[in-house]
Structure formats: structure tokens, C-alpha cells
Simulated assay, not measured.
Amino acid sequence: MVGRDAIVHFLTVDFPRMFVADVTVDFRGFSADGDVVVVEETMQATPANGNVYRNDYCLVFELRDGLIHRVREYMDTANGHRMMFGDS
């Protein structure tokens, strides 16, 4: 996603359709160095397919002029795919 409008659309429209209940985020660690902040978290939720979703994330925030300029998100994509779509 690039740009504020795309991110807002994902968070307000797409995310609630993908994860329909029980969304929780357990923050596991924070690190900061200058204008870079790293956040480690585990997200759990119930996706629209009724499966159990649990995945670890690492987010790297780059700040510019006190605002978030860029976010990079890392996760276990194979694990996420399996929980969202099964073993196919």
C-alpha cells in the first residue's frame, strides 16, 4: 500500500472484512534509534473463514518531521497464508 488513502481504506474497509472478530495485538518489544522505531507484536484474530489466526509481526517505522513517513511490515507469510486459506 502506498499513500494515506490506500492505508486508510485497508484499515477501515478491507481489514474488518478479513478479520471479523477477536482481534488482539500483544506488543512484545519496542526499539528506537533516531527516526527509526521497531515494534514486535503478535496478532490474533478470527478471520472471515472462521479459522484461528495467530502470527508474529515486526514493523519498522521511519519518521520524518515527527510524522510516520514509511512503515515496513515483516511477518511469516507462509503461516499467514495457511491460516487464511488452508494448506492449498
Rank of each mutant, 00 (worst) to 15 (best):
R4F: 07
R28Q: 15
F61S: 11
M84C: 03
G80S: 15
D56F: 02
V2I: 10
V13I: 03
D14Q: 10
M83Q: 13
G80E: 12
G50Y: 03
V13A: 00
N79T: 15
L59H: 15
V2S: 03
F10H: 10
T77E: 13
F85K: 08
V71M: 13
R70K: 04
Q44I: 08
M18D: 05
D5M: 09
D87W: 10
E41L: 07
F61W: 13
P16V: 03
V8H: 07
G80L: 11
F85W: 12
F61C: 13
E73I: 02
T12H: 11
A6Q: 08
D76S: 11
R17N: 06
H9I: 01
M1V: 00
G80I: 10
R72E: 08
D26V: 12
F27S: 14
R70L: 12
T77A: 07
S31H: 13
S88H: 15
M84W: 05
F85G: 05
M75V: 09
G29T: 01
L67V: 05
T12R: 11
N51G: 11
E62W: 10
E40H: 03
Y57A: 08
R4Q: 00
S31W: 14
N55V: 10
D33R: 15
V52E: 15
V36L: 14
A48T: 02
N55W: 01
D35G: 06
Y74C: 12
V39R: 13
G80N: 12
G3M: 02
V37E: 01
E40F: 09
